[in-house]
């Protein structure tokens, strides 16, 4: 646990904030209100999750940095199995989603950023984009009560339009044998995912690879992105 919080690099965050934040602000025309509620000290920062998850987590990270908050984000443990990605997220303050990690962060007088909705909320279809609640997630509330920490709610609006999820289908998941291959019952289809898999499949075939390898590459890319986010 010591290692997890120790890996955070303020230099990295400062550098990212200097270069990436202006880009995000310009491209997504980010408008922030109520940022004065972000104050240093142990607190749970609870936000809704949409398909533009990276934009959400990074913009909140930069806002907290500007306000002088030390913030750690709870992330799915699968993320830390990918070598370079894991290193990057450790540097910007990601910790494994567990009660112990959360307790450690709060003990260190730092804030904890949680997206309780997780992938289930982030991958909801566009028609459900106005539903930002996460009734199924209870762990974060128990955490707040256990540690008697203040809870700062943050709501993102518009991030679902960054990569719109067109629909989420159980049938498609079965057609793609996802329940058996990846243990996933619903399959969300986003515009970017369809275009990317098509581009990768055609690219592989364009390099002279056989048709089956192009189809396989396209299939993997098609199935992969939703869970990577």
């Amino acid at each position: 646990m010591e290692k997890e919080t120790a890996a955070r690099s303020l230099k990295w965050i400062a550098s990212l904030e200097r270069w990436l934040w202006p880009v995000l602000k310009t491209v997504f025309r980010i408008e922030v209100s109520g940022e004065h509620h972000l104050r240093p000290g142990p607190a749970l920062i609870i936000a809704n999750h949409n398909s533009g998850a990276l934009v959400e987590s990074h913009s909140l990270l930069f806002l907290c940095f500007q306000k002088g908050l030390t913030v750690f984000g709870l992330n799915h443990k699968a993320l830390f199995k990918i070598p370079l990605v894991s290193r990057y997220f450790r540097k910007i303050g990601a910790v494994t989603a567990s009660r112990e990690a959360a307790a450690q962060v709060l003990r260190e007088n730092a804030s904890l950023l949680i997206f309780p909705g997780g992938n289930r909320q982030a991958l909801r279809p566009l028609s459900q984009s106005h539903v930002n609640s996460f009734e199924w997630a209870k762990g974060w509330a128990a955490l707040a009560v256990t540690h008697q920490a203040p809870v700062v709610p943050v709501k993102f609006t518009g991030t679902h339009g960054i990569n719109p999820i067109l629909f989420s289908s159980r049938l498609l998941a079965k057609i793609l044998v996802l329940p058996w291959a990846f243990g996933v019952s619903h399959f969300p289809l986003s515009l970017a995912q369809a275009l990317l898999s098509l581009a990768v499949g055609m690219g592989v075939m364009g390099l002279g690879a056989p048709l089956w390898s192009g189809l396989l590459a396209g299939y993997l890319v098609f199935c992969f992105p939703p869970w990577c986010r």
Binding site: V27, F28, R29, I30, E31, V32, S33, G34, E35, H36, H37, L38, A43, G52, V55, S59, L60, L63, K138, A141, A142, A144, V145, Q148, A149, P150, V151, V152, P153, V154, K155, F156, T157, G158, T159, H160, G161, I162, N163, P164, A192
Partner: peptide, 23 residues
């Protein structure tokens, strides 16, 4: 990726013992 307009709203904090006492 679509450059959609993003709004972030930070609300006043909920405090234990004042706004909530149970999860």
């Amino acid at each position: 990726m679509i450059p959609a307009k993003v709004r972030i709203k930070v609300y006043p904090p909920f405090r234990f013992g004042v706004d909530f006492s149970t999860s």
